[in-house]
Structure formats: C-alpha cells, structure tokens
C-alpha cells in the first residue's frame, strides 16, 4: 500500500472543499462603487453629448450663414454699391450731365434688384453676372441696355433734360472675375441708345452737343 501522497493532490482535495465569507466587502460598499461609476459615466456621456451638440449647432449655423450669404440679394447690392462708390470717387468729371447719368444708373440697378427680390424673371444684371459665353454676353448686354434705356427714358422725361444721357456699369464675369466697364447712352435728340467702353468719346459728344446748344441760344 502506497503510504505517500503527492503534495499537489493533497492541496487540491482539501482546498476544493473550502468556503469563506468576505468580512468587509458588503453589498453596500459595492453598490456605492457602482453608483459612483454610473454617475461618472453619465457625466462623461453628458459632456460628450454637449460637445457633439454644440459642434453640430455651430456647423449648422456656419452652413446656414454661408448659404444665406450666397442667396441673399444684399451680396449683389453690396458689390454694386462698392462699384458705384468707387466710380463716384474715381471719376472727378464735374460735368453735370455726367453726374446725372450716374444717378440714373443707380436707379436702374435698384430697380433690377427689386425685381430679383420679388422672384421674377432674372434681371439684366443677374444675367450679365451669370452668363459667360459670348452669345449669352451679347443677350445680357442687350437686355441690360433695354432695362437701362427704359429707366433712362423715364428719368429723362421726368427731369426734362435735353441732350445725351450717360450711365456706366460693371460686369463681373464668373470666368475671369475681371471688371469690365461699359457706358450706356441715350441720345434724347436722336432717340438712340449707345454702348461705349471709352468715356472720352462720349465726353467729346457731350461737349459738341453743348456747343451746338450754345450756338443756337446765341
């Protein structure tokens, strides 16, 4: 009979029967730890949610702001106003007729802006801004010319001024972003419209007309 036993087996047999209760670890301490962990988890989730929500709101705001800026007619008006002020400050020609025509042009522009705000058909300015091809450019110039002429006619009839009226306008092309200046004229005596890029030409016409007038008056 074997009188010896492996020490590993001895411990295995004895310790398998064992059982003991914890003295200090109670449900209450465990519950407190669980509650604390839940609180921390909730806090972390709240901060995550808050960060996410504020980021989303900021992005939405920025998106909305950029979209509204793109769609707003104010942006167009802003560009034109800058140009108008620029034209006024740069051009120091003191000819009264010339200034009058600049004012007329402002009225034309505002009228077109109003029509675009009402959601009607695209105005001549909008067409001129958006269209880039040569054909389209031509048609836009024509429509712009027509719109200018209509208003010029009204303005001229109201003021009852004689001689040649003059206005200028800038076209922004999407392709080149270059500023191109055109001058629109309405000759009251001949009842004809003119589009000229060089203002000196019309200045000479205006002077000639004035001279003719003066000679008639004399």
């Amino acid at each position: 009979m074997d009188r010896k036993e492996d020490i590993g087996k001895l411990f295995e047999e004895k310790l398998q029967q064992g059982n003991a209760s914890p003295q200090t670890t109670s449900w209450d301490t465990l519950k407190d730890s669980l509650d604390e962990k839940d609180r921390k988890k909730k806090k972390r989730l709240f901060f995550l949610w808050l960060t996410g929500a504020s980021t989303a709101l900021l992005l939405l705001y920025l998106l909305a702001a950029s979209v509204s800026k793109k769609n707003s007619p104010n942006s167009l008006q802003e560009d034109i106003t800058v140009w108008e002020l620029d034209s006024l400050s740069n051009k120091t020609d003191s000819t009264p007729t010339y200034r009058e025509t600049e004012e007329v042009f402002k009225i034309v522009t505002k009228d077109r802006l109003k029509s675009s705000e009402k959601g009607g058909s695209p105005s001549a300015t909008e067409s001129a801004v958006s269209e880039t091809s040569d054909n389209k450019k031509k048609s836009s110039e024509e429509s712009l010319k027509d719109a200018t002429n209509t208003t010029l006619k009204e303005e001229v009839s109201e003021k009852k001024t004689s001689g040649t009226q003059k206005s200028d306008h800038t076209l922004w092309t999407e392709k080149s972003d270059q500023v191109k200046t055109k001058y629109y004229y309405y000759n009251d005596s001949t009842k004809q419209n003119m589009v000229i890029e060089d203002p000196k030409v019309i200045d000479s016409i205006l002077k000639n007309t004035q001279k003719t007038k003066d000679s008639i008056n004399e």
């Binding site: 010896k4 036993e5 492996d6 020490i7 590993g8 411990f11 064992g18």
Partner: peptide, 20 residues
Amino acid sequence: DTSIEKELTKIPLGTLLGFV
C-alpha cells in the same frame, strides 16, 4: 521528491490556505 507521508496530511484547511 514532492510527495509526503499520508499521516502528515492531516492539517486544518485554514493552515493549508495560509501555506499557499
């Protein structure tokens, strides 16, 4: 050798646990 005499195996559980 890691075996032990059987008569020496009569040890209380708490003592064995302490040894481990």
